[in-house]
């Protein structure tokens, strides 16, 4: 087969810029604005955390320092309450199950709605965003009956994933919807289908890789929600990490433990999300 000469096309060049001086000045102003915003918001979040750290490290006497409150987290044991490690394990398992169920449920549904039943899009969006408007206590009252029945089968706290999937729906939906709208799902899937791909292959090899960032964001939001969830687990009498930390702080006379456990929970979630984020984004395209 004979080769042909390239048409000599070049990728679309960036539009001609403004004079360099103007651009540099604008960039400086923009950078300054960024630093100011970053500093203000950084302080807003960091100051309470620093205060918590300070209180957790305060000794028995004023002006002295001690790590007793932190040691008490690890050494804490109480009959009838699962140890800390067990609750960490359960919370992590819950995060994994919730993320998996949410993805399996939401991604194919959203793609299918986009491809085949566009008229359902608004309804699906409404249903997914609905949990945002329902207070946790209302959810618990509604779900209490169901969970009471589940409890008859002596199932573990992992059963909380049902309600966590509902809670994560609005955040995951928004993240995935943004990713879906950034790609031409119809054309990509039709192109793949015409090349012989099954619907499963279309989802796994074509759509999902192009929604990588959106899926990762949905996973991060879901994981963050599960790691930090307290109200529903506590009201439904299950023990996850947050409930366990609360129990620790309640059963010790040392007030510093309250702060050390809260900070420990925050750090745990933060580190985990950082790992998830970096692991997910490391394999970027070249």
């Amino acid at each position: 087969m004979a080769a042909v000469t390239s048409l000599g096309e070049t990728p679309i060049a960036a539009p001609a810029g403004r004079p360099r001086g103007m651009q540099a000045s604008r960039r400086r102003r923009l950078n300054l604005f960024r630093y100011v915003v970053f500093t203000v918001f950084g302080l807003f979040f960091l100051l309470p955390l620093l205060a918590m750290a300070r209180f957790s490290l305060e000794g028995a006497n004023l002006g002295t320092w001690s790590v007793t409150a932190w040691r008490q987290i690890a050494s804490y044991q109480n009959t009838g309450i699962p140890p800390l490690l067990s609750s960490i394990e359960i919370t992590l398992e819950l995060a994994v199950i919730t993320c998996a169920v949410m993805l399996v449920l939401l991604v194919p549904t959203m793609v299918w709605v986009r491809l085949r039943v566009q008229w359902l899009a608004r309804t699906i969006e409404f249903i997914c965003l609905l949990p945002l408007t329902i207070p946790a206590i209302v959810l618990v009252v509604g779900l209490g009956e169901i969970y009471n029945k589940i409890r008859h089968f002596s199932l573990s706290a992992l059963m909380l994933f049902w309600v966590y999937v509902i809670l994560a729906l609005p955040y995951a939906y928004r993240a995935l919807a943004a990713g879906l709208s950034a790609i031409d799902v119809t054309t990509l899937s039709e192109a793949a289908r015409s090349l012989g791909a099954s619907w499963f292959t279309v989802m796994v090899r074509v759509i999902a890789p192009n929604m990588r960032a959106a899926i990762l964001n949905a996973l991060l939001l879901t994981a963050a929600l599960v790691l930090g969830e307290f109200t529903i687990a506590y009201l439904l009498l299950y023990t996850n990490l947050q409930v366990e930390l609360y129990s620790i702080s309640r059963s010790t006379p040392n007030a510093g433990v309250l702060f050390s456990t809260s900070l420990a929970a925050l750090l745990f979630a933060f580190v985990l999300l950082m790992i998830l984020s970096f692991a997910g984004r490391r394999r970027g395209r070249g």
Binding site: I183, D184, T187, L188, E190, A191, A192, R193, S194, L195, G196, A197, S198, V206, P209, N210, R212, R285
Partner: peptide
């Protein structure tokens, strides 16, 4: 998927990844 036809679309349809 089973029709054995090659298709070129109006919109750019290359897989971006």
């Amino acid at each position: 998927a089973k029709r054995d036809m090659g298709m070129v679309f109006q919109a750019y349809s290359l897989f971006p990844h």
